[in-house]
């Protein structure tokens, strides 16, 4: 990889389980990608990521645009200075379309949520996110792998070795776990149980999210769980169709955010809001206050750095958030 004085774009996806950073060039190609564990501390994860990128790209590059996404998108945008703040459904769709132009169905399973996105004529036509239960998501698989003392990376491979599948109740994480333990105590092999779990998750996903929707080719599967070959095989069996795993399947949100930031900057004549790689090195503090001025009892979040208030949000009336007005798009 040659690093000259390049114009690059940065996409940041602060999710519940992982924080991903993607750097792309003017041709929308990924120059570098990072997949870090959020470990419940998004600011720390962001700081680590920015440090790693900073040491790699140093002073020789210009970041022309920054996009943030994921459940921590607002927090990330305040800390590094983002040009766009986009929800993860839109970013995932944009990224998938870039890599697989004729994509019609996007299956996405992340750490805490799973979603399905249906595209028609190149635009998002319909989508659904899991509503009540985390049974079909990465963190549940993570937990089960840990319980069986199998590295999560090898988890899927076990499923492929199964010869007689076991039916696991996958509706709810708690019931699935007790059902797995029950099957294990009656003497089923670990491979069969893991395969049963993969099938249960896929069944749950299809029943919950894909209900009433036509899953047309081309189908793309992305998100951290796409690395699990057992789940991929179970999807292919259940749908009877071939599934494509895109190249950057684990960082698609961040990739999409970078693409949207690039598009916005290229369209407008404005410069970037980016504070520079050093921005994350400052000390950031987040605190929440319950506002008791009216009966809404809003939980206001305040981000401060060196005793300076950077941003506040969470209030309905705008009394707190309007104190710090920043000239940028926070919502949408």
């Amino acid at each position: 990889m040659k690093l000259g004085k390049m114009s690059l774009y940065l996409g940041v996806d602060v999710g519940s389980v992982s924080t991903n950073l993607v750097v792309i060039n003017g041709e929308s190609e990924v120059v570098d990608k990072l997949y870090l564990r959020t470990s419940g501390q998004p600011i720390n994860a962001l700081r680590t990521g920015m440090k790693m990128l900073s040491s790699k790209f140093g002073q020789n590059t210009v970041i022309r645009g920054v996009g943030t996404t994921g459940s921590g998108r607002q927090l990330a945008s305040v800390i590094i200075g983002a040009d766009i703040v986009k929800n993860e459904i839109t970013t995932h769709a944009v990224a998938a379309q870039m890599l697989v132009p004729d994509v019609k169905t996007i299956l996405e399973i992340g750490g805490q949520d799973s979603k399905i996105i249906i595209l028609k004529n190149g635009v998002v036509y319909d989508f659904a996110m899991n509503t009540v239960c985390a049974a079909g998501t990465g963190s549940f698989l993570d937990r089960q792998a840990a319980r069986l003392e199998i590295a999560i990376e090898d988890f899927g491979a076990y499923a492929l070795k199964s010869n007689s599948p076991v039916r696991i109740a996958g509706r709810c994480a708690v019931f699935a776990e007790s059902d797995m333990i029950h099957k294990q105590q009656t003497g089923h092999s670990t491979e069969d149980i893991i395969n049963g779990l993969c099938e249960a998750l896929v069944r749950n996903y299809i029943n919950n999210l894909a209900k009433g929707k036509d899953l047309e080719d081309t189908i793309v599967f992305q998100g951290g769980v796409a690395a699990n070959v057992g789940i991929v095989a179970a999807f292919e069996r259940a749908l009877g169709k071939k599934i494509i795993i895109p190249k950057y399947y684990d960082v698609m949100g961040a990739y999409g955010a970078a693409l949207i930031a690039k598009e916005k900057i290229e369209k407008s004549s404005q410069g970037s809001n980016f504070y520079g790689f050093g921005a994350a090195e400052n000390e950031y503090k987040a605190r929440s206050i319950e506002c008791n001025d009216c009966s809404n009892l809003c939980e206001v979040i305040e981000i401060t750095s060196n005793n300076e208030v950077l941003a506040r949000w969470g209030d309905r009336c705008g009394k707190w958030s309007s104190v710090v007005k920043k000239d940028k798009e926070i919502v949408g």
Partner: peptide
């Protein structure tokens, strides 16, 4: 948060359509 994400994405979808 999840609720807002859905609404935001829905409005994006409508705009694109």
């Amino acid at each position: 948060a999840g609720y807002m994400t859905r609404i935001e994405a829905f409005v994006d979808l409508l705009n694109k359509r």
